[in-house]
């Protein structure tokens, strides 16, 4: 059900993701390459590649990148991007992040950027990541997280849990295919459980322009004021996390990206 929603949402808005500055030029993209230090012999997999920005940024550094996604229209954008940048070592496949069509121990690097908040079963996804990684292989994750004591200190667990629900509701209203952005602690727990040993984490705050955020997903006109009202009416914990601004009628807020690098034992 939610996977069909993902295909619908991204099928309809695929082109917007090729040009989305957050996805194409997000600071976390260059940072990710720096942290991962890809090698020329590596075979890499980018899961839920979207318009292929992460795959394309790694492609010049490795032997081959497979870019997989649930949505055919997104992979059309990937092909366009690969052609534009003359990247001959990018391959595409339609695949489900929770049932990857790749053999055990076949990749040196698996990346997944700003996507798992759409996945219904993150534990299953991580088990698949571990399976397809070679021993010692690297998993590089970037995803929007929901607030917890790490991103938003000074609040009670109950306040933070309500703020996390509020944040996910805000995302879901804008994009019905949004599943759940996990809080940082839950990510780290699930990765450890999957046998992925954490080697580095950091947070990258990401300033968002409300109008462009709404536009990328082609939000219906009647939903836009409801989203604005959610920002205005945010609880103190949610406001401390989203840091909403409203100057000269121009709204903004801040999202938090977790960057985590792990190795398969």
């Amino acid at each position: 059900m939610s996977k069909e929603l993902v295909q619908q949402q991204f099928g309809a808005n695929a082109a917007a993701y090729l040009t989305s500055t957050v996805h194409a030029k997000g600071a976390s993209l260059a940072r990710l390459v720096k942290l991962v230090q890809p090698q020329g012999t590596w075979v890499a997999l980018d899961v839920a590649t979207g318009a292929g920005h992460t795959a394309a940024v790694f492609a010049p550094h490795v032997a081959k990148v497979v870019a997989s996604d649930l949505t055919p229209e997104m992979l059309e954008q990937v092909k366009k991007l690969a052609a534009e940048k003359s990247l001959g070592n990018m391959e595409t496949a339609i695949a489900d992040a929770e049932a990857l069509p790749f053999p055990d121990q076949s990749f040196d690097l698996v990346t997944c950027r700003i996507a798992p908040h759409h996945f219904p079963d993150i534990a299953k996804f991580l088990a698949e990541v571990r399976r397809v990684l070679k021993p010692g292989g690297t998993f590089a994750l970037v995803d929007n997280v929901s607030p917890d004591s790490e991103t938003t200190p000074g609040f009670t667990a109950a306040e933070l849990s309500a703020a996390a629900d509020g944040y996910n509701a805000f995302e879901k209203l804008r994009d019905p295919s949004h599943g759940r952005a996990l809080p940082t602690a839950e990510w780290l727990q699930l990765m450890a459980k999957a046998g992925l040993k954490l080697v580095h984490t950091e947070h990258a705050p990401k300033g968002m322009d409300f109008q462009s955020w709404v536009k990328t997903m082609n939000v219906p006109a009647d939903v836009v004021p409801r989203l604005a009202a959610m920002l205005d009416g945010a609880s103190p914990a949610l406001a401390a996390f989203l840091k909403p601004t409203n100057a000269d009628g121009k709204r903004g807020f801040t999202l938090d990206e977790l960057i985590a690098i792990a190795r398969r034992a």
Binding site: V43, V66, E91, D96, A99, L100, P101, F102, S106
Partner: peptide, 10 residues
């Protein structure tokens, strides 16, 4: 070359 990298997802 991609074919060599693919298996049945199930």
């Amino acid at each position: 070359r991609l074919l060599e990298l693919l298996v049945c997802p199930i």
